[in-house]
Design a protein around this nucleic acid. Structure first.
Lengths: 136, 136
DNA sequence: TGCCTACTCTATTAAATCCATAGGGTAATA
DNA sequence: TATTACCCTATGGATTTAATAGAGTAGGCA
């Protein structure tokens, strides 16, 4: 299942992508428009800022804004930041690889074989979608 | 993440698929060979039996066995039984559809749009893989 | 300067899920 | 009839998720 964190994060990014200009948008406005708990959203936007997706401005007229153009923001990056590894098992993860303790041989493991295919096809989707694509 | 339940279930099915004949295999044997907690495996095999994937035989010489040939067992079925919905959000699920409370319009929802693609590509993988394919 | 706004951080908690274990009961076969 | 192996219930620890609360900090503008 997709976590609410990821879901809310994607919705917030989409909302920002739909702004006419790149002026900062207050958290409260995003939270209200997308039906998200403001405090929860705060922590999500913070992560997105720290990882270079968003910028922020404090004080009156402040808020969050996209640093790059929507078509430059890849879903692979966003999903990894918000949801974590794309692979369903660590032994097929590109960025978070870990060996399975219980599995003597990855080469002959049926789970490994299946999950490798799932990872590849999912990755393909994320690579072919930018923020601009999903708000269209 | 893939649950251990699914992982163990797939491993058990693979082990059964690799048997020469279709004689019942005791839980203890599967558990030992695949490094799985026997009691936990019991509940998993039980589910697989109740949903028509496995058959069982009690008493001496008993155990679990595949009801159909490995190439007749689709991963779509197995994954839905063990892991649940294939979709990452209920609003794009074929078999477990639910409307999102917080989402006013699915047609314009960016999360919906992205997750629909992910579901389709994942489903494609599961449809193209039988138990026979993943043990090869 | 001083106040207001909005971001930032820490801590806590309720709820849900996952994984595993334990123990006893029941059915079938040699 | 005794053994083997399936079947069922329930319990609990661990982890994660989602949300809430409250205090603190920094920037903008009068």
């Amino acid at each position: 299942m997709l976590s609410k964190k990821t879901k809310y994060g994607l919705k917030a990014l989409s909302y920002l992508a739909l702004q006419k200009d790149r002026q900062p948008v207050p958290i409260a406005e995003i939270a209200k428009h997308e039906n998200i708990s403001q405090k929860f959203l705060e922590s999500i936007l913070l992560t997105l800022r720290k990882t270079g997706i968003l910028g922020s401005k404090k004080g009156k007229g402040g808020g969050y804004y996209l640093i790059k153009a929507p078509k430059e923001i890849l879903m692979t990056d966003v999903m990894r930041i918000l949801e974590g590894p794309i692979a369903m098992v660590p032994c097929v993860s590109l960025n978070f690889y870990e060996k399975c303790e219980d599995c003597p041989n990855e080469g002959t493991c049926s789970v490994h074989k299946l999950m490798l295919q799932v990872r590849d096809s999912t990755l393909e989707i994320y690579r072919n979608n930018t923020l601009a694509d999903i708000v269209k």
